[in-house]
């Protein structure tokens, strides 16, 4: 038996909206410690890793480990039927072929349940090592979203360079070129409005803007985003989802063959 209840159901709605274009399907791996998902996009150049801890839910029970194969477009259709203020409960029997989603309105006067058909998905798990990065940048998630959206209208790829001057995002295309530089800025009173650059050594890497833009669909989940960069390694883009967990994106850099 698996059961997970979250009062703030809108978080689940936002999570699925953030992921569904990048990964069409994947396994929700549930265990006594929580719910995780690891999935690659169809071209395998980016990886999404979602962790929702058991103690982040209002109620959580999982008697045996299960991999529930989810089609995210279909899950999104069902979650669109939940109100933003609804409490959402996920339920499945052991070895079930459906996942039940129950939505309760805030004043308990409307209760609905939907069964999502589960899929059998073969997936391989990749080990992502904890490592020190050359540059780590924490910035407002809305700022990151604006930068990648603006640059996507100019070019296809972005060169991200981190130096002691700051972090520079550069692109070029048919209309011309664009450079946006962010400096370390801890003056805003609210921590979520600060930009914090932790530079161990200068680094510059090029990425496809289409994916970086796609990652910013997670903006509604967190006020800050963290970008981590090391030469020749994937960029690591992380959103903390309150006390519930995190969603992490990895994207391979563009390289000269």
């Amino acid at each position: 038996m698996f059961e997970a209840r979250i009062t703030q159901g809108s978080v689940l709605k936002k999570l699925v909206e953030a992921l569904k274009e990048l990964v069409t399907e994947g396994n929700f791996d549930v265990s006594s410690t929580g719910l995780t998902l690891q999935a690659m996009d169809s071209s395998h150049v980016c990886l999404v890793s979602l962790t929702l801890r058991d103690d982040g839910f209002d109620h959580y029970r999982c008697d045996r480990n299960m991999a529930m194969g989810i089609h995210f477009g279909n899950l999104s259709k069902i979650l669109k039927c939940a109100g933003n203020e609804d409490t959402i409960t996920l339920k499945a029997e052991d070895n079930a072929d459906t996942l039940t989603l129950m939505f309760e309105s805030a004043n308990q006067d409307r209760i609905s349940d939907f069964d999502l058909k589960l899929m059998s998905i073969e997936s391989e798990h990749l080990g992502i090592p904890d490592q020190d990065y050359s540059a780590e940048i924490k910035m407002p998630s809305a700022e990151y979203q604006r930068i990648v959206r603006d640059l996507t209208s100019i070019g296809d790829t972005v060169l991200i360079s981190a130096t002691k001057e700051g972090i520079k995002f550069s692109t070029s295309g048919d209309v011309g070129t664009a450079n946006i530089t962010l400096r370390h800025n801890t003056t805003p009173e609210k921590p979520e409005e600060q930009t914090i650059i932790d530079l161990k050594e200068p680094v510059a890497l090029t990425f496809a803007l289409r994916y970086l833009n796609n990652f910013s669909k997670a903006t509604p989940l967190a006020p800050q985003v963290k970008l981590s960069l090391t030469k020749d390694l994937p960029i690591f883009v992380e959103y903390q989802v309150g006390d519930l967990g995190n969603v992490r994106f990895f994207l391979a850099p563009k390289i000269d063959d």
């Binding site: 990886l47 798990h125 990749l126 080990g127 390694l233 994937p234 391979a252 390289i255």
Partner: peptide, 14 residues
């Protein structure tokens, strides 16, 4: 030419 490696070339399969 500019290319992109697969995620599996950066992270080992478990």
């Amino acid at each position: 030419a500019v290319g992109q490696k697969s995620m599996t070339s950066f992270f080992a399969k478990k």
